[in-house]
Structures are given as structure tokens and as C-alpha cells.
């Protein structure tokens, strides 16, 4: 196992870079970060639309979210892979295909987190803001959302873990993220499949376990602060 790491660690981490496109673990992380970054504003808009008092906003967005949440990510990737080119009129490479699918998919899940957050804040907050003369949007922007976003920090970290795991599905469209690279290494070495895939699992584990422990810590920290405030 040591000589396996010794020979292939650089390939595993960055793919063929700098002699070719960036890949490996670096690409996995970049995809996950960009995916969540772009999905967040979209999820925010969807989440607010989900609790909107206007039906013509609430219904179509709710339907869209239900559809995305009822389909596997792989299906979303396939749709993006086959129909983005005809939609945009130019060839989309695997990176943008995967990123588009991830953003759409994650936005639907983030929207539900945000919706739950907004509904958990309590009507009194909106009502007081409204009676102080804030418009609906101002009350959302200045009173409700700042509280929601602080409360949802642990969920956001957990969503990031989920996104890292989701990037592995780029494998199927030939995106050179870390699972794909592991398979490449496996076909080159040929004799040590168990070790190669154990190392792959271990890599994901270290990354995701560390992050989910961080989310757990954030949540406890937040709870203690809320408790301390309640006692003060």
C-alpha cells in the first residue's frame, strides 16, 4: 500500500495537472465548493418563494423542488449531459455539466433547509417587523434571513459534506474527479483493486468525517450560546 501511495499520490491529488487538466481530489473540492456557492443564492430565492404569501410564486417553485427531490442526482446529470448542449447551442464540457446539475440539485435541498429555518423563526418576528413599517421584502432581508442563516450554519456544513459525496457521480460522465482517478490508477496497477478503493474510501472519510464533526461542534456551540443568552 505504501508504494501505491508513493507512486500515485500526486496523480490522486491533482490529476494530470500541470501537464493536463486539473483533476483528482483538487477537482472534487473545487466542484463541491463552487456547487454549494452557486446553489446557495438560488436555494435562498427558492426557499423564500416556498413560504411566499403569493400562490403564483409558491406553487411553481414548490413543484420544481418536489420534482428535483424526487429524482436521483444521476438523472439530473444525464439530463444536463444530453440537453445542455442543445439548450445553450455549444458543447458543454463535463465540468460545467456536472456543476450545473449539482447547483440545481443542491438548490432544491438548500431551499428546504431555508424554508424550515424561516418557519422555525416564528410569526411574531415578521409581524413586529411589518407593524414597524418594514415592507415584506425588507422584513425578510433585515429581520428574518439574518437569523435563519446563523441558525442554519451546521446544516450548511452538512450540505457541503453531501455535496462532496455527490461530486463522485461525475465519474459516470467521465469527469476526472477523485473516484474516476482512482479507477484510472486501478486499471494501471491492475493487481490491487481492494487497496486502491480502500484508499479512495479513506480519503473521502477523512474529509467528510472531519467536516461533519465540525458541524456537530458548531451546533453544540450554538446551542450553548443560545442557552447562555436565555439565562442572562
Amino acid at each position: 500500500m505504501i508504494d501505491l501511495i508513493d507512486t500515485y499520490w500526486l496523480y490522486f491529488l491533482v490529476g494530470q495537472y500541470p501537464h493536463g487538466p486539473l483533476g483528482g481530489l483538487a477537482l472534487t473540492l473545487i466542484l463541491a465548493v463552487l456547487g454549494l456557492l452557486f446553489a446557495f443564492p438560488l436555494g435562498l430565492v427558492f426557499g423564500i418563494a416556498r413560504v411566499s404569501p403569493w400562490r403564483c410564486v409558491r406553487w411553481p417553485v414548490s413543484a420544481l423542488i418536489q420534482v428535483v427531490r424526487g429524482t436521483p442526482l444521476l438523472m439530473v446529470i444525464f439530463w444536463a449531459y444530453f440537453f445542455l448542449p442543445s439548450l445553450t447551442g455549444q458543447n458543454t464540457d463535463q465540468f460545467w455539466t456536472m456543476l450545473t446539475a449539482l447547483v440545481v440539485f443542491d438548490a432544491a435541498y438548500l431551499a428546504e433547509i431555508i424554508r424550515a429555518g424561516i418557519q422555525g423563526i416564528g410569526k411574531g418576528q415578521t409581524e413586529s417587523a411589518r407593524s414597524l413599517g418594514f415592507s415584506y421584502l425588507d422584513a425578510m432581508r433585515l429581520v428574518i434571513l439574518p437569523q435563519v442563516v446563523r441558525n442554519m450554519l451546521p446544516s450548511l456544513v452538512n450540505q457541503f459534506v453531501a455535496t462532496i459525496k455527490e461530486t463522485s457521480l461525475g465519474y459516470i460522465i467521465g469527469l476526472t474527479e477523485v473516484s474516476f482517478i482512482a479507477t484510472q490508477i486501478n486499471t494501471q496497477v491492475l493487481t490491487k483493486p481492494a487497496e486502491v478503493y480502500l484508499l479512495l474510501g479513506l480519503t473521502y472519510f477523512i474529509l467528510c468525517f472531519g467536516l461533519s464533526r465540525f458541524a456537530f461542534w458548531l451546533e453544540r456551540h450554538h446551542q450553548q450560546r443560545t442557552l447562555a443568552k436565555a439565562h442572562a
Partner: peptide, 18 residues
């Protein structure tokens, strides 16, 4: 934790190839 923190795809690859 060992199972939840690794994507299902990596599990499948391990059980099939490894």
C-alpha cells in the same frame, strides 16, 4: 460513521472491483 462519510459510488466500486 465509516459508511456515512464515504459516497455510495465508492462503496459500489469497492464491493465490485475490490
Amino acid at each position: 460513521e465509516a459508511i456515512r462519510n464515504v459516497p455510495l459510488l465508492a462503496h459500489m466500486l469497492f464491493w465490485y472491483f475490490g
